[in-house]
Write a protein that binds this DNA or RNA. Structure first.
Lengths: 150, 150
DNA sequence: CACAATTACCCACAATTACCCACTAACACA
DNA sequence: TGTGTTAGTGGGTAATTGTGGGTAATTGTG
């Protein structure tokens, strides 16, 4: 289970150094083999260990391909999915197209989200997070959440 | 069960010394392995023993991830959750991003809250506490609270 | 087939963090 | 009130991690 925020600087080549504390787990789980794709709701990227991605892609493939919503998901998610490998220093080269999609330049945020990571442009993340903090208050919570005691 | 207020000074490296009376329980319960995340209502931090946190994260993970409110909670809570270990002197290094979120500089408050702790900037805590004292007067209590005998 | 652009691999330095040690303050007990 | 013990605080050092950049190999393009 991945969690936690990390501020990471991309270098001029567009490489992102994965924080050391995640590397062991990534090496064990998927031998450093990851898949990066886009998030369809927000301008951020999703980073999956290959084994987790395979499960997701299987689900997407199983959707009825005549359904337009399903087709759209297939094109967006599978279409943008890129295979990445960590280099010897635990870095990932983020493909230029995906960098553009998420508006990444230098300062980026890596967000642990359980089975996957999210990658955000730092300023985009800050504004989005502040928006979330505002919105969470006073909104109708789904029933499952009402019983959540933190 | 943790309880009580403690005024604690962070040192220049951002470390917080856990009061000695809590250390034994923390060591026994979770071998000094804790998780720190943000509170979404107030600008303070929540500190959980790892076993308590695992329960919470499992609940959050189980929420439907297409529900926007659930997504937001996942991003805020899991996204900010950082693993911390007590050092040999019972201190925790508070990550810089979380320190910023809660506005911690030197004088901080550690608040025992049952299964977890809360960490506040001291002046923020004082104003918030005073506000609470004001608000409690004359407010309508939910039924569950009316039957509470203190 | 040659050239340019990109990518993979490697090395070097800078910054951060983990670990350890030392000092001071607080407290309990005689 | 003195003494011993524990807790709190500060900081030094070594190892690890983050960052930058060079060069060779590979790929794409004309």
């Amino acid at each position: 289970m991945f969690r936690g925020v990390n501020q990471i600087n991309l270098d001029v080549k567009g490489r992102m150094a994965i924080p050391a504390r995640y590397r062991d787990q990534i090496s064990v789980q998927c031998a450093g083999h990851l898949v990066l794709t886009i998030d369809t709701e927000e301008r951020c990227l999703l980073l999956y260990p290959i084994d987790e991605w395979d499960i997701i892609q299987a689900k997407i493939d199983a959707l009825p391909s005549l359904n337009p919503v399903a087709r759209r998901l297939q094109r967006l998610l599978v279409g943008h999915a890129s295979d990445l490998d960590m280099d010897s220093h635990g870095r990932l080269l983020i493909p230029a197209l995906l960098r553009d999609y998420a508006g990444l330049d230098k300062k980026t945020i890596l967000l642990g989200q359980g089975r996957k990571f999210e990658i955000w442009d730092e300023s985009n993340w800050n504004t989005t997070r502040d928006r979330y903090l505002q919105e969470v208050e006073g909104e109708a919570l789904p029933e499952a959440l009402l019983n959540l005691s933190l």
